[in-house]
Design a protein around this nucleic acid. Structure first.
Length: 511
RNA sequence: GGCCCGUUCGUCUAGGGGUUAGGACGCAGGAUUUUCAUUCCUGUAACAGGGGUUCGAUUCCCCUACGGGCUACCA
């Protein structure tokens, strides 16, 4: 049977990096086994619905290149792929559960339940569960006389449908990542299946949809592990036990400090992004930083994420998408949660940057410069990007790291200058300037030859000449090779900066 | 609190009854380089603790500790 997996996010806000990784693992698994990857929008909670969240999600997946084979956009044979459009379907199965006695109607209002919880907690010190121990003390079709239930029904009283969890049973299943997992039925509560608004909860909807969509493997985060027994029961009562998809619960991505699962709050405090794309929170007006806007390449992000919880069993760390598909499988997914290591993410990105074509990088850099209103010569960008890519981790760092390519150097490393330069040495540089003016073509190789010849001829060490040239050109001792810098800057700018800044140096040291 | 899951260098991880416990990030040092970066080399650093089982446990079992998840008419 062909593998079919799904990524089923809820549009309650921006999808974060953990969601991206879940999507990635699903995608890799599907591709590896030549199966299909579906996207299903789990929008059954009207209260938590956030406008734009679905749009954001789609854009994020597109940016990452994790395109579904079936989903709300591309359609497919098992649609609709948005749960809010499938209400009629869930109603059928809810009724089936009710008829077979595996579900019951509960009339307790939310206020009643709140009060009940407060009372119970006060009495026992623990919040109670709506389960096989307590259900007969609450107001439902199991505890109420049939005529009362009928009366309530006839009066149109609001009610929910709950699962009737069996007594004295061990419910176990094999998790592809963790092996066998067991739960006692006494610990499982009578979860709401159908809410008072007629929409299903996650539990019912997910089981029904996975079955109807012929999902073979449910690959999701570990936060779902505890609802496993509930889903097992649902598959059983719906008569689908033999076609039940396999379960695989992925380890969570933890905060860098290891305290809890990765959260936007903690990440924000540390100044690191957790969202793929920028997200503007309408309510607070706050913009949450995205990896894209931060300067990450989607492939680098994915590569980093893939290794967070999975490894190929070889020492390879850098993967193309095809290689990842080839190497990926669930049996090499780790069990324990992994902390998010931003430094390593940056390292991956630099590795990608270094491998990227300078032309591509140039257009990206050009865009960035335009956004920032930095004037530049587009023709020089490939060379500049080529030089800078080995010196930064993120594309976004390029404008700053190489700012002297686009404008006058913003600062001067004075300490370095005092160490390397003396006013008496000025004639040497004036003469060198003359040599440079005569240099043709004004290219790295010719410039190097010129300067080296001059050094040999005058007995000046390169160690004396080069730092000053660099300081006059860029204001700092750091940066790409001087001759490459000069070539990109062009004769006019080089001569002008040299004259101007040498004068400035003299003035500075004299003063 | 209860239930479930987990625990190898600071971090991501490989390994698995007998290994010099391997790699990567980071950090430190060195080589190269006019400088920085790149590259290369070297170093740093780990089997949570206690009991078993065994000739031998980091590896298998149990307990403890610690960490994480769940505990809604949320997903």
């Amino acid at each position: 049977m062909a593998v079919r997996v799904r990524f089923a996010p809820s549009p309650t806000g921006p999808l974060h990096i953990g969601g991206i990784r879940t999507a990635l693992y699903n995608y890799l698994f599907a591709r590896h086994h030549g199966g299909q990857f579906l996207l299903r929008i789990e929008d059954t909670d009207q209260k938590r619905y956030v406008a734009n969240a679905e749009e954001y999600l789609l854009e994020a997946l597109t940016w990452c290149g994790l395109t579904p084979d079936e989903g709300p956009v591309q359609g497919g044979p098992d649609g609709p792929y948005r749960q809010s459009e499938r209400s009629a379907i869930y109603a059928v199965y809810a009724q089936q559960l009710l008829d077979s006695g595996h579900a019951y109607r509960a009339f307790d209002t939310e206020e009643e339940l709140d009060q009940w919880r407060v009372r119970e907690e006060a009495a026992t010190g623990q919040p109670p569960k709506y389960d096989l121990h307590s259900r007969m003390t609450l107001r439902n079709s199991l505890s109420l006389p049939p005529e009362e239930t009928a009366r309530l029904l006839a009066s149109g009283a609001d009610h929910v449908l709950r699962l009737r969890v069996p007594e004295n049973e061990t419910i176990s299943f094999v998790d592809l990542i963790r092996g066998q997992v067991s739960f006692r039925s006494e610990e499982v509560d009578d979860k709401v299946l159908l809410k008072a608004d007629g929409l299903p909860t996650y539990h019912l909807a997910n089981v029904v949809d996975d079955h109807l969509m012929h999902i073979t493997h449910v690959i999701r985060g570990e936060e779902w592990l505890s609802s496993g027994p509930l889903h097992i029961l649902l598959y059983r009562y719906l008569g689908w036990e033999n076609e039940r998809p396999a379960f695989a619960h992925l380890p969570l991505i933890l905060n860098p400090n290891g305290q809890g699962k990765l959260s936007k709050r903690t990440a924000d405090k540390l100044g690191i992004p957790v969202f793929p794309l920028n997200w503007l929170d309408d309510a607070s007006g706050q913009t949450w930083m995205g990896f894209r806007e931060n300067g990450f390449e989607p492939q680098a992000l994915l590569n980093f994420l893939a290794l967070l919880g999975w490894n190929p069993g070889t020492e390879q760390e850098l993967f193309s998408m095809d290689e990842m598909v080839q190497a990926f499988d669930l049996d090499r997914v780790h069990k324990a949660g992994a902390r998010f290591d931003f430094d390593k993410a940056r390292w991956f990105n630099q590795e990608y940057l270094k491998r990227m074509d300078n032309g591509v990088l140039a257009s990206r850099l050009g865009q960035l410069l335009v956004e920032r209103g930095v004037l530049h010569d587009a023709n020089a960008l490939p060379a500049i990007a080529g030089m800078l890519k080995e010196r930064v981790h993120l594309l976004q760092e390029m404008p700053e790291a190489g700012h002297y390519f686009f404008e006058e150097p913003r600062s001067l490393d004075e300490a370095a200058l005092r160490k390397k330069y003396k006013v008496e040495g000025r004639p040497v540089f004036d003469q060198l300037l003359g040599e440079l003016q005569d240099c043709s073509p004004f290219e790295a190789e010719a410039l190097e030859a010129k300067v080296k010849a001059y050094a040999a001829q005058t007995g000046q060490g390169l160690g004396v000449l080069m730092p000053i040239l660099r300081l006059a050109l860029a204001g700092t001792l750091q940066g790409p090779p001087v001759f490459d810098m000069m070539a990109v800057l062009g004769k006019e700018k080089v001569v002008q900066r040299l004259q101007q800044n040498l004068d400035r140096f003299d003035a500075l040291l004299a003063g």
